[in-house]
Simulated assay, not measured.
Amino acid sequence: MIGLTKIIVAGFKGRMGATAVDMVLNHDGFELVGVYDPVATEKNLNEVAGYADQNVPVLTLEQVPDVTPDVWIDFTIPKAAVANTKFALEHHISPVIGTTGFKAEEVAALKQLSKEQGVGGLIAPNFGLTAVLMMQFAKQAAKYFPDVEIIEMHHDNKLDAPSGTAIKTAEMMAEVRAQKEQGNPNEKETLKGARGANYDGMHIHSVRLPGLIAHQQVQFGGVGEGLTIRQDTYDRVSFMTGVALACEKVTAAHELFEGLENFL
Score class of each variant (00 low, 15 high):
T60E: 13
T60V: 06
L61Y: 13
L61H: 10
L61W: 13
E62I: 09
E62W: 09
E62N: 13
Q63I: 01
Q63M: 12
Q63P: 08
Q63E: 15
V64E: 02
V64F: 06
V64R: 05
V64Q: 08
V64A: 04
V64I: 15
V64P: 00
V64W: 08
V64D: 03
P65Y: 08
P65R: 03
P65E: 06
P65A: 07
P65L: 03
D66G: 03
D66C: 03
V67H: 11
V67M: 06
V67T: 05
V67K: 00
V67C: 04
V67E: 11
T68S: 15
T68Y: 11
T68R: 14
T68H: 15
P69G: 10
P69D: 10
P69T: 09
P69R: 04
P69W: 01
P69Q: 04
D70S: 14
D70L: 07
V71G: 06
V71F: 00
W72S: 01
W72D: 00
W72H: 02
I73W: 05
I73F: 07
D74V: 11
D74G: 11
D74T: 15
D74Y: 10
D74H: 12
D74C: 12
F75V: 00
F75D: 03
F75W: 07
F75S: 10
F75M: 08
T76Y: 07
T76V: 08
P78Y: 02
P78R: 05
P78S: 01
P78I: 00
K79L: 08
K79C: 01
A80L: 14
A80I: 13
A80T: 14
A80H: 09
A81D: 15
A81G: 14
V82M: 03
V82H: 05
V82A: 13
A83G: 04
N84G: 14
N84F: 04
N84V: 00
T85L: 12
T85F: 01
T85S: 14
K86S: 08
F87R: 04
F87E: 05
F87P: 01
A88L: 03
A88C: 09
A88F: 08
L89P: 04
E90S: 13
E90R: 07
E90M: 09
E90V: 01
E90Q: 15
H91P: 07
H92Y: 10
H92M: 07
